[in-house]
């Protein structure tokens, strides 16, 4: 399986999982919602790959902070990103070698920790 076909299959799976878990998303956003979720996940993977190539998890962590700010301003809280990242971790395993998987997993877990800290900060502020 080449890289692009592997990514396509992975993106299909993550979109399916998210929309199965939250049927109201489809009712609200329809096919366009699926398209956007796919694009978002392509971005997550692009940043993970870039962090891996540069051996610098900070690139992914900074991206997560930026994404959180972007989505918060559009009425979405960190839960949606945490849920997405948590679902990605087990799915990635079949799509890459162990070294890369371990790196991606560590980045996603670091991202989740940052988002949990943001959530706490928001709760304290309110």
């Amino acid at each position: 399986m080449n890289q692009q076909a592997g990514n396509d299959a992975l993106l299909d799976k993550i979109v399916e999982e998210i929309f199965n878990a939250y049927p109201s998303l489809y009712e609200r956003y329809g096919e366009n919602g699926k398209k956007r979720t796919r694009e978002d996940n392509q971005h997550h993977l692009d940043y993970l790959q870039s962090a891996y190539d540069a051996d610098d998890s900070k690139l992914f962590v900074d991206y997560t902070v930026w994404l959180h700010e972007l989505l918060s301003a559009r009425g979405m809280n960190e839960k949606i990103i945490i849920d997405n990242y948590e679902r990605l971790i087990p799915l990635l395993k079949d799509h890459m070698d162990k070294g890369k998987y371990d790196f991606f997993k560590a980045c996603l877990e670091e991202g989740i920790q940052i988002l949990i800290a943001e959530k706490k900060k928001d709760e304290e502020d309110n």
Binding site: S50, D53, L59, D62
Partner: peptide
């Protein structure tokens, strides 16, 4: 855009 670092190399 940070994810272009690989391409930049």
């Amino acid at each position: 855009i940070p994810y272009r670092i690989t391409a930049l190399k």
